[in-house]
Amino acid sequence: MAVYVVGDFLRETRLRKGYTQEEVSYGICTTASLSRIENGAQKPGRLILEKLFERLGTENNLFNSFVSREDMELYSAIQELIRNVTDEEIDKIESQIATVEKMINNASSLERQCLLFAKSKLAVQKEENNKKAMEILMEVIHITLPDFDGKTPLRSNLLTFDEITIINSIAVRHASNKEYFKAIQLGMWLKEYMEDKIVDGKMKTAKYPMILYNLSNWFGNEKYHKEALSMADEGIKFSVKYGNLAAFPILVFNKGAALAEMGYINEGKKYLRQSITIFEAMEKDERIQVAIDWCKTHYGIEF
């Protein structure tokens, strides 16, 4: 049986997928550093190793990078910050930012990217400052993708999961400004990238349905209801297959809304009712009332 070390696995995976060292390392580390990692001459830090795996379209489920106690504590603190951002726990985000900042003496670019992204979330949720959030997000993405202009997809670039999340957040900010075409352009880039480049895993299971949900919203806002229905349908099928309960009911709601907008009121009503039932089962009370009010206001449907 062959025994792999991390450098061998990185190199063989990269070559099998036909990627250059420049494509994989861009914005994460130097090409020379990746070469040394692949040859076993340099031990990568935990965060760098994770992002290199993500650029290769997979997750680091096989290898651990043995680091100092301080590095491990910092990595754990950053992971907690990421979880708080994902859950939109605003008070916890603010507290965890302070914790991480105290632990960082000479922050790496990847650590700084995580901190700035968390601060962009605060700008939106706490300060309700869309312009400030967009400025921070552009600063965040330029840490690893300096050529990205915030509008035009970089289809030749490989992406980490963090970069996908940041670009999706930039698209959301465009949509908040009612610039739906810009949002759709970025959303379709991410959708196609995740379909073509990323193998199944927990990060794809979490992020892909939300990208489809956003696209269904944005197409609907632009009155492209057939496309909105298609995005919702794709998201529902994926969520059922991979068990994403968070995205499932909101995608079902969007399917019902798209059908209603297309004139299929009875069929649309069926899916809208289903989504409300699922929200009730999940005890998402805030979602229930929003859904009920939306149906009554837009379609004259009462539940």
Rank of each mutant, 00 (worst) to 15 (best):
276 I>K: 12
253 F>E: 11
150 G>T: 09
48 I>A: 00
211 I>K: 03
56 L>Q: 09
270 K>D: 00
244 N>V: 03
185 Q>D: 13
159 L>D: 02
129 N>E: 08
47 L>V: 13
56 L>N: 10
205 T>A: 06
203 M>R: 05
205 T>M: 12
26 Y>R: 12
296 K>E: 09
150 G>V: 07
205 T>F: 11
195 E>G: 11
26 Y>D: 10
102 K>M: 14
110 L>H: 08
34 L>A: 06
62 L>W: 06
242 Y>V: 10
170 I>K: 03
62 L>Q: 15
126 K>E: 13
294 W>C: 07
39 N>K: 15
220 G>E: 06
88 E>Y: 10
296 K>F: 09
55 R>V: 02
115 L>E: 09
30 T>E: 08
241 K>A: 11
94 E>I: 09
126 K>P: 05
199 V>T: 15
129 N>K: 08
210 M>S: 03
217 N>T: 07
78 I>F: 05
284 K>P: 00
286 E>Q: 14
198 I>Q: 05
80 E>W: 00
123 A>P: 01
139 E>S: 07
215 L>T: 01
45 G>R: 14
172 V>D: 01
136 I>L: 14
240 V>Y: 13
297 T>W: 02
120 S>E: 01
251 L>E: 00
130 N>R: 12
185 Q>N: 14
104 I>R: 12
220 G>V: 01
91 D>G: 05
167 I>D: 01
101 E>Y: 02
113 Q>H: 09
83 R>N: 01
201 G>Y: 04
81 L>D: 05
245 L>G: 00
206 A>C: 02
120 S>A: 15
124 V>Y: 10
128 E>W: 09
128 E>A: 15
248 F>V: 04
24 V>Y: 10
90 I>H: 04
32 A>S: 06
172 V>I: 08
164 I>N: 04
215 L>G: 04
151 K>V: 11
253 F>Q: 08
133 A>H: 10
142 H>Y: 05
146 P>Q: 05
45 G>A: 14
42 Q>A: 15
184 I>H: 03
190 L>H: 05
13 T>I: 14
257 A>W: 03
216 S>Y: 00
71 D>K: 13
